[in-house]
Design a protein around this nucleic acid. Structure first.
Length: 224
DNA sequence: TTATAGATTGCCT
DNA sequence: GGCAATCTATAAT
C-alpha cells in the first residue's frame, strides 16, 4: 500500500533538536491502522538536548529506558509517565549522540471518530467544534491515546518508514510562523525557551498565558 | 531491597 | 486553581 504522504527523510532528523523542532511544526503524524488512517498536524513540540539539558532523560547518561534517544535519528522514543500516560518523542542527531523532540499537541485531520473512541470520548459529527478536537490531541498523553501509541508497540519504531504503521510525513503545507516559550511541566531548566508552537494555533496545549511571545534576546538563543 | 520523583490528566472546590 | 491517581525507571540504601 502506497503511503498517502511523502515521509520525512533520515537527514531531516540528523540535526540539532532545536532545528528539527522548528521544522516539525506543520508536518503530519500518521498512524496506519487495520482499516483506516489516523492523521494529525503537529502544532506544538519541545526540544530536549543531551548533555547540558538537565530536563532531558538523557542528562545522566544512557540507560535501557532512554536507549532510543542515543540511537540513530528518526526513531520513536516512547516512555510511560505518571502511571497513566505515554509520551512520544523523535530521536535526533547521529547514532551515539543524544537529543530528541517531544510531540506535545496535534490538530486532528483524518480518523477523528476513531481517535475519540481511543480517548474514551463520544463526539457527535459530522461537524466537530475546535473544543471537541482539542480534547483529542492537545497534550502529549492525550495524543498518544488518540493514536494508540504505546511503549510496547511503538518504542524504537522508524518514523521515516511508512510501512512501520507510525510515521511522519509532509503534505506540502507552507512553513508556519513559530512561537517560542519555556517548556511545560518540568522543574529543571524550566526557563530554557525550547517549546515551539505554531503561532496563534487553537490546538496547542496549555492556557493562553503560556503561549505568548518571548523577548527577542531569548529567541536568538533558542533558534539554531 | 526500598524509596522517590516524574516531559500528565481530569476531577474537585 | 489545587491535587490525587497510578506505575516504573532509576537512585539510594
Amino acid at each position: 500500500m502506497k503511503p498517502v504522504l511523502a515521509p520525512l527523510s533520515r537527514a531531516f532528523f540528523n540535526r540539532d533538536p532545536r532545528r528539527v523542532s522548528r521544522e516539525l511544526l506543520g508536518k503530519i503524524l500518521v498512524r496506519q491502522r487495520r482499516t483506516q488512517t489516523l492523521s494529525a498536524r503537529i502544532v506544538e513540540v519541545e526540544a530536549y538536548l543531551g548533555a547540558g539539558d538537565p530536563a532531558s532523560h538523557t542528562f545522566s547518561g544512557r540507560t535501557p529506558r532512554n536507549a532510543v534517544i542515543f540511537g540513530p535519528p528518526g526513531h520513536a522514543y516512547v516512555y510511560f509517565i505518571y502511571g497513566n500516560y505515554y509520551c512520544l518523542n523523535v530521536s535526533c542527531l547521529p547514532d551515539g549522540v543524544p537529543g530528541g523532540v517531544l510531540i506535545r499537541a496535534l490538530e486532528p485531520l483524518t480518523g477523528i471518530a476513531e481517535m475519540a473512541r481511543l480517548r474514551g470520548l463520544t463526539l457527535i459529527g459530522p461537524e466537530y467544534s475546535t473544543r471537541d478536537l482539542k480534547a483529542l490531541t492537545s497534550g502529549p498523553g492525550r495524543l498518544c491515546q488518540a493514536l494508540a501509541v504505546t511503549r510496547a508497540e511503538d518504542n524504537g519504531k522508524d518514523l521515516t518508514d511508512p510501512t512501520s504503521g507510525l510515521y511522519l510525513g509532509d503534505d506540502g503545507a507552507p512553513r508556519p510562523r513559530v512561537l517560542l516559550t519555556p517548556r511545560i511541566g518540568i522543574v529543571k531548566a524550566a526557563d530554557m525557551p525550547l517549546r515551539y508552537v505554531i503561532a496563534g494555533n487553537p490546538f496547542v496545549s496549555g492556557p493562553g498565558s503560556q503561549n505568548k511571545p518571548l523577548p527577542t534576546f531569548a529567541r536568538r538563543a533558542a533558534f539554531r
